[in-house]
Simulated assay, not measured.
Amino acid sequence: MTSLSSTPAEDTATAVVQNHAAGDSAQTRRNRWLVDQSMSIGYAILFVLLAFTVENFFSTANIVGLMLSVAQIGMVACTMMMCLASRDFDLSVGSTIAFSGVLGAIILEHTQSVTLAVGGGLLAGALIGAGNGVLIAYMRVNALIATLATMLMVRGLAFIVSKGQAVGIANDSFISFGDGRLFGLPYPVLVVAICFIVFGVLLNHTVFGRNTLAIGGNPDAARLAGIKVERLRVWIFLLQGLVTAVAGLILASRITSGQPNSAQGFELDVISACVLGGVSLQGGKARIFGVLIGVLIMGTVENVMNLMNVDAFYQYLMRGFILLAAVLLDQLKSRSTRG
């Protein structure tokens, strides 16, 4: 009768193979962790270097100013993250910021009611976002074309309703949204902190977030799994429009006017911040902490260039370089994942 027990040599060979496999698995996990945390580590090093080399960078006033300067980008990046995670994007956010700010200022001018002004701006943003969602999800219009068309139409509406002029704001209660402070921090900084907490929980700890990532990973498989893909996409864009309107109203309160030409190119800064933070342009992957790092990178670069009195033309060049670097980084991460 043949014995089925293994020999000592076979046991040794099996153990060696298992050890190698465990070592490779551990190495793979370490490499993946380094890739995922590369921007966080890079930003930490950059921050320390700037603190020691750029005068006034690490001052309390400048750090608060830095957080305030990225407040609008941070708010919208939270919802843009959800759009990108579901394999969509929104180019109309800059125009929505301008229109909601202008509309809020006009309503405030005619009614002197802060509630109506804020409500009108938020409703406009929600309708713009939901309209984008319907075009993309139900009418099957490509996200690039749909949101590009919306960007142009909404910007045009901002100029039409304001007659091409800035709409001044003199209401102290409305101005306090952008100018007031709590615990020494400006209200916009607190609002963006709340946005990151809320959307972090939404992405990582709710069915809504899991379904969003599932749609981005494979829409057809998500539909077969019972996810109402079209309805969820509309909700994602509605949230995008709503939060963008909040950013627009806060911007209007900060500059004490509704400006129809404000936030031009804003959408590219937001997408750059998201992609720098590890959100995949191919959908299905997003990290809220990574988006925060991406937003801080964008703001820090601009802040340092302002401290060093770098000409605005070079700042445009740097923003374009960051956008290109973000896209290339996304491509490299995608290839390493497939590999």
Score class of each variant (00 low, 15 high):
13 A>S: 07
285 K>P: 01
317 L>E: 02
280 S>F: 04
209 G>M: 06
114 V>H: 01
98 A>L: 08
60 T>K: 03
221 A>P: 12
301 V>A: 04
320 G>M: 07
246 V>F: 06
106 I>A: 09
66 L>W: 09
316 Y>N: 10
117 A>Q: 00
155 R>F: 13
61 A>F: 06
330 D>E: 15
237 F>N: 04
131 G>D: 02
233 R>K: 15
306 N>M: 05
207 V>F: 04
205 H>A: 00
116 L>F: 13
24 D>S: 12
183 F>A: 13
124 A>Q: 06
46 L>A: 01
118 V>M: 11
11 D>N: 09
12 T>E: 15
294 G>D: 12
146 A>Y: 06
214 A>V: 10
183 F>P: 06
225 A>G: 08
15 A>K: 11
21 A>M: 13
40 S>M: 14
83 C>P: 01
287 R>F: 03
183 F>T: 00
170 A>G: 10
206 T>E: 08
161 V>N: 12
67 M>A: 12
327 V>W: 14
117 A>K: 01
215 I>D: 07
194 I>T: 12
15 A>G: 08
212 T>Q: 10
13 A>C: 06
284 G>R: 04
63 I>G: 01
267 E>T: 11
181 R>H: 15
270 V>R: 01
299 G>V: 15
39 M>G: 01
89 F>R: 01
81 M>I: 00
24 D>L: 15
223 R>W: 07
92 S>Y: 03
272 S>C: 15
293 I>W: 00
104 G>V: 10
11 D>G: 07
147 T>E: 14
53 T>P: 08
125 G>M: 00
320 G>T: 02
224 L>Q: 14
160 I>S: 09
95 S>N: 08
230 E>D: 14
36 D>R: 13
57 F>G: 04
322 I>G: 00
141 V>I: 15
184 G>D: 07
101 G>L: 00
94 G>T: 02
124 A>L: 11
101 G>C: 00
290 G>C: 11
301 V>I: 15
203 L>Y: 05
215 I>L: 12
57 F>M: 05
155 R>T: 05
276 L>W: 02
239 L>G: 12
183 F>L: 13
45 I>W: 04
199 F>L: 15
2 T>E: 14
124 A>T: 14
315 Q>P: 09
266 F>W: 03
219 P>C: 13
24 D>Q: 13
195 C>I: 05
225 A>C: 15
310 V>M: 10
317 L>C: 13
171 N>G: 07
293 I>P: 01
31 N>M: 10
154 V>H: 03
116 L>K: 10
175 I>T: 13
139 M>K: 01
268 L>M: 06
246 V>C: 10
336 S>M: 14
187 Y>A: 08
166 A>F: 07
195 C>N: 03
117 A>Y: 02
296 L>W: 07
24 D>H: 09
182 L>C: 03
117 A>F: 02
257 S>I: 09
148 L>V: 03
64 V>K: 14
201 V>E: 05
312 A>T: 15
54 V>G: 02
62 N>A: 08
109 E>M: 00
32 R>E: 06
107 I>Y: 03
330 D>A: 10
164 G>N: 01
14 T>R: 12
247 A>N: 07
62 N>I: 08
221 A>T: 14
215 I>Y: 11
208 F>A: 13
148 L>H: 03
145 I>R: 00
4 L>I: 07
313 F>T: 12
86 S>P: 03
97 I>E: 04
321 F>A: 14
